[in-house]
Structures are given as structure tokens and as C-alpha cells.
């Protein structure tokens, strides 16, 4: 555990809390992509099946359970409890275009051709692109509420901080995993446009609005 890794994890927890609080306090999931949230639930389910096969630390297990529980909690709030507020007319990204290539890629490029390893690899690939339906939704409506922007910033920062963690671990521990690193770079790059808008607009008190 190093500072980048810890900050990355905390940023991820913060993103989850912001999202759940936004939905709960405003009794609305307007502006949130249910398709991205569905992909995240698939990601954590596929990745953390190792909860049953290997134990790393209490911290590791608690975080995994938290991420799985929060993703299903979000799904429940969006598709059941606050279903009426779900903006599905703007949430139209075809997720099969993300899921199917990730399945094929995970079968083709992995560390070991075993069920758990392939599921882990699939989850890493899918996570890297899971935010696309959400970003597509923001670009379609041309704006995002500030709270949604904070959520996206925290969620994007998490993998960016993991990149620093991997640089650190490469030098300090000679540990590296090309699959996670390449996917992490892709994931972070997808947020770059949003990061720019967040820093130049939202942090200056303006609403995130895309240029017409």
C-alpha cells in the first residue's frame, strides 16, 4: 500500500458516496446513466469473485464487498425505487458494443486461460470503457449537474491515481501488470476531456455545459 493507491481507493469510495447521496437526497437519478451503472455492477461482480477463493487483507475484502454492495444499491435506486426519475431517453449508448469486444479481448489476451482469470481480465477491460454511456449521456444533454460532475471527477481520479501507484510499484517493488496498466491508461484518457471541462468550469463555480 502506498499513498497513491490509498488516495485512489479513497477517491473511488468518495465517488460512490457522492452518487448514492445525490440520488438519495434529491430523490432523483436524473442525469445518471443506468447503463454505466449496470456495467459497473458487472465489472465488480466479475472481478471480486475471488472473495471466495483468496484472502488478501480485511481492508481488501471490506472494499470489495463495499464496491459490490454500492453498485447493486445504485442499480436498485435507479431501476426500482426512483425509476420514474431515470432519464432513459438520453441513456441510449449500446452497451453490447462494449461488453462483446471485452469478452473477446479477455478470451484472447489474458495472463492465464482459467475461468477466474478470464473474468478478472474481462472486468479490467470493461471497467476501462464502462463510463462511456455516462459521458455519452452528458454530451447528448450538453450539460451535467455540479454534483454529477464531482462524481465523475472522483471516479476518473481513482484510476489516474492508480497509474501513479503502478509507476511507484514498478520502481519500488518491481511489480507490474500490463493488462491493468494499459486498461488504466485507456480509462484515464477517456476522462481527459471531462477533466479539462471540470477544472476550467466547475471549479470556477460554473455549471458543466458543453460548447454548442
Amino acid at each position: 500500500m502506498n499513498i497513491f493507491r490509498l488516495l485512489g481507493d479513497l477517491s473511488h469510495v468518495l465517488a460512490i458516496l457522492i452518487l448514492l447521496l445525490k440520488i438519495w437526497k434529491t430523490r432523483s437519478c436524473a442525469g445518471i446513466s443506468g447503463r454505466s451503472q449496470l456495467l459497473f455492477a458487472i465489472v465488480y461482480t466479475a472481478r471480486y469473485l475471488d472473495l471466495f477463493t483468496s484472502f488478501v487483507s480485511p481492508y481488501n475484502s471490506i472494499m470489495k464487498i463495499l464496491f459490490i454492495a454500492a453498485s447493486y444499491g445504485t442499480i436498485y435506486l435507479m431501476f426500482m425505487k426512483f425509476k420514474a426519475t431515470y432519464d432513459h431517453n438520453h441513456d441510449t449508448f449500446r452497451i453490447e458494443f462494449l461488453v462483446l469486444p471485452c469478452i473477446v479481448l479477455a478470451l484472447a489476451v489474458n495472463h492465464e486461460f482459467s475461468p477466474l482469470e478470464i473474468l478478472w481480465t474481462f472486468s479490467i477491460y470493461l471497467e476501462s470503457v464502462a463510463i462511456l454511456p455516462q459521458l455519452f449521456m452528458v454530451s447528448k444533454t450538453g450539460e451535467a449537474e455540479s454534483i454529477t460532475s464531482h462524481y465523475l471527477f472522483a471516479l476518473g481520479s481513482y484510476r489516474a491515481l492508480y497509474l501513479l501507484n503502478w509507476v511507484y510499484r514498478y520502481y519500488a517493488e518491481n511489480h507490474y501488470d500490463w493488462i491493468a496498466i494499459v486498461a488504466g491508461i485507456v480509462q484515464t484518457v477517456l476522462y481527459c476531456d471531462f477533466f479539462y471541462l471540470y477544472i476550467t468550469k466547475v471549479l470556477k463555480g460554473k455549471k458543466l455545459q458543453l460548447p454548442a
Binding site: R5, W120, N165
Partner: peptide
Amino acid sequence: LKGKYLKDEL
């Protein structure tokens, strides 16, 4: 552990 190394990251 099944894999080649421990997946200690999240």
C-alpha cells in the same frame, strides 16, 4: 492462490 500472483489491488 490460483493465479500467478496475488491480486491485492481493487
